[in-house]
Amino acid sequence: MKPGSPAVGRRLQIFTGRAHPDLAERISAGLGTALVPTQARDFANGEIYVRHEESVRGADCFLIQSHTHPINTWIMEQLIMIDALKRASARSITAVAPFYGYSRQDKKHKGREPISARLLADLLTAAGADRIITVDLHTDQIVGFFDGPVDHLFALPLLADHVAGLTEHHRLTVVSPDAGRVRVADRWCDRLGVPLAIVHKKRDKDVAHQVSVHEVVGEVEGRVCVLVDDMVDTAGTICAAADALYDAGAEDVIVAATHGILSGPALDRLKNSRVSRFVFTDTLPTAAATGLDKVEVLSIAPLIAQAIREIFENGSVTSLLQDL
């Protein structure tokens, strides 16, 4: 902390829930501080008990909890931890959700459906969160669901620079797995200076996880194709897109995604896929737990740590986004 900094005389405290403590440890290490000890346990009926073991009165508190499986348990734990901080007179509370749950439910597709991403934003605010830090929301509009500040970070520079080092630059083509990811893929193209292709697909809205790939738009024959997405859940979409690229003559396919959710059949699909390499960040613990040689995990901790530092010192989080 520099003398004269606006943060001089204030206390920075970092907390973690039980969802992904390894990431929280890496973030706190990057800040040169230790995690505040917290008791957390479950009662016999599944209720969660939490107690922070140090005074938080007047402190700027950052609570890290990524919404991984079992997602509803960890969201509830984060809400309870925020409530405990608020009732203990914390100066400010920032909810750090590297992966923000329910982000795919950001609008109504049919009548009588919820907008669950908005509901989660309301719950975090009601619990006492003053601010949110998150990484690669499924859609940018979710930022508008919060009444307070939202620092929306992006893993694109981390992922793109790593992928660029895996093969010769002139052989790369960035591929969007569907029309909804074209904007993200276009940002990759701008950063890497490579061409864009799109896999045109149609999902059966009435049958879960059913995807029919129609055609590849763009030149992929003989190219190393980088399929980019914000998340890989059951891996059905991304593996079907990879098959379409190989069928169109791609020499190799690499998948790069921020969030490796990897639910249900995902592990088997990754293992049996023709994709040569899957690159994720550690926003979730699931990618590192696969044990597959073809899965690489890059740490998002330095980016989140720097964002926390900028917020605490009244700096500029926007400065972290200038190279997008």
Rank of each mutant, 00 (worst) to 15 (best):
G260V: 11
R223T: 06
A121V: 09
P177W: 13
R51F: 08
A160W: 10
E215Y: 00
G144C: 08
T134M: 11
K294H: 06
A185G: 14
L324M: 14
N45H: 14
I254T: 12
K271G: 01
S103P: 05
E215V: 10
K201T: 12
V297C: 06
A121P: 00
I80E: 03
Q105W: 01
V199D: 03
A307S: 12
I308L: 00
T173N: 06
A34R: 15
P114Q: 02
Q306D: 12
R131I: 11
L298N: 09
E77V: 02
Y102T: 00
V279D: 00
E251D: 15
A179Y: 10
N45Y: 09
L23I: 02
L172D: 08
A129Y: 07
V182C: 13
A121H: 10
C239M: 12
R223Y: 00
I64T: 05
K201C: 07
G315C: 02
V220G: 03
A24P: 11
A90G: 04
T286C: 04
I198D: 01
E313V: 13
Q39F: 14
G165N: 03
V163T: 08
V182Y: 06
K107T: 04
S66R: 04
S176E: 05
F312W: 08
V135H: 01
H214W: 03
L119Y: 14
W74V: 02
A19G: 01
A287Y: 02
R104L: 13
V207L: 12
E47N: 13
G236E: 13
G46M: 11
T237Y: 00
V175H: 04
V50Q: 09
R269T: 08
S316G: 12
R277W: 04
G222C: 03
L172Y: 02
L153Y: 11
K86F: 08
F280E: 05
P37T: 10
G264S: 13
G315W: 05
A257R: 01
H69W: 03
L153I: 09
A242S: 11
S276H: 09
G9Y: 00
V50A: 05
L79I: 04
G4R: 06
G17E: 09
A179T: 11
E168L: 12
H69M: 14
H170A: 14
L172M: 14
F15I: 09
L31K: 07
V50C: 11
A179S: 14
F154K: 04
H170D: 15
H138S: 15
F312I: 02
S176K: 08
D293Y: 02
A117R: 05
S273C: 11
G222V: 02
D204Q: 06
R191H: 10
A248S: 15
I133Y: 13
D130M: 04
Q78R: 03
L156D: 08
P265N: 09
L196S: 01
L123K: 10
I311Y: 06
P21M: 06
A244W: 05
F43W: 13
D178F: 07
M1N: 12
D190N: 15
A241D: 07
T68Q: 01
P70Q: 12
G101D: 09
L35W: 08
P70D: 01
V184Q: 15
G260A: 12
G58K: 03
P114R: 07
V211D: 03
L85N: 06
G128A: 04
G218W: 00
